[in-house]
Simulated scan of single mutants.
Amino acid sequence: MPRFIPNYYNLACVIFVALGSCACSYGQSIIGSTIGQPSFYTSFNLAKQGEPGYSGTSKLISAMNGVMTAGSIFGTAFTAWFADKWGCRVAVQIGTSVMIVGIVLVSGSVNMAMFLIGRFIAGFGIGNLTTIVPLYQAEISTPEQRGFMVCMHGVMVSVGYIGASWIGFGCYFAYPFGDSTFPWRFPLAFNMVPNLVLLVGSFWLPSSPRWLLGKGREDEAFQTLRRLHRTKDDPEELHIRREFYQMKAQLEYDKESKQGLGRFPLFSTAQ
């Protein structure tokens, strides 16, 4: 086994959760081919480039990108709260569920208002997953292999960009001169595939050992850490025990530090 992989179970978890990274980059970039489909403009009675009224269309195109970015900001802001309260695994499930709702609305849109609302909701899920996936990868990895494991986030982001480009390109030729909505609806709807796979499979992902330990579930945290970091080179599991106690000490120190800060005001009026 390569030295940068603790065990294949750990690697499988890291790669599987990175489906969220793929879904995020796909969802962000697929709009590029959507606005290149002639039938998209026909479906919403939008003026095409060179036609009277295109200035209004260009503003709507800007809004399509803007509302997703706004949704991502809100999704990112709430991720810390989700992860702290329910753990990274549940935060992943929330992100994928929200994004699926957004994808359904966008791909099934019958008017521009529905499309923009769907983009905002999908953006919320993207903001959540873009933040939580690398965090989860880092928390289930060993300190020595953390850099390699978190790189899987970037790799799958690239996969999502590539997939969006080729699927959008291929669908352009499905009905190049017809009025079918398939060329723009299908690429948008296809983003449900990685989200659904991740949502269903997330129930088999382990919770973060650090989060379990922070919630007082020490036995479960240790057993999860053993499963993730067990290696043949350490039959007595000394490395795992050392990492567990270091994690425990760090959490206790953080707790004491927060309590200590709570005894002092942020700003003192004493002269």
Rank of each mutant, 00 (worst) to 15 (best):
G50L: 08
G53K: 06
G53N: 08
S58V: 07
S58M: 08
K59R: 14
S62T: 13
S62K: 02
A63L: 14
M64D: 00
G66A: 08
G71N: 02
I73N: 11
F78W: 12
F78Q: 13
A80K: 06
A83W: 00
D84M: 10
I94W: 04
I94C: 10
G95F: 02
T96H: 02
T96V: 05
M99C: 10
I100G: 01
G102F: 01
V104I: 15
V110N: 12
N111S: 08
M114R: 03
I121G: 08
G123E: 00
G127M: 05
N128L: 07
T130K: 04
P134V: 00
L135V: 14
Y136A: 07
I140D: 05
E144A: 15
M149R: 03
H153T: 15
G154F: 04
V155I: 14
V155W: 13
S158I: 15
V159C: 10
G160L: 01
Y161Q: 12
A164W: 06
W166N: 10
G168N: 04
G168V: 07
C171R: 07
C171G: 09
Y172H: 15
F173V: 12
F173Q: 14
A174C: 12
Y175S: 14
F177H: 14
G178V: 12
T181R: 10
T181N: 13
F182E: 11
F182M: 10
F182K: 11
P183K: 05
N191G: 15
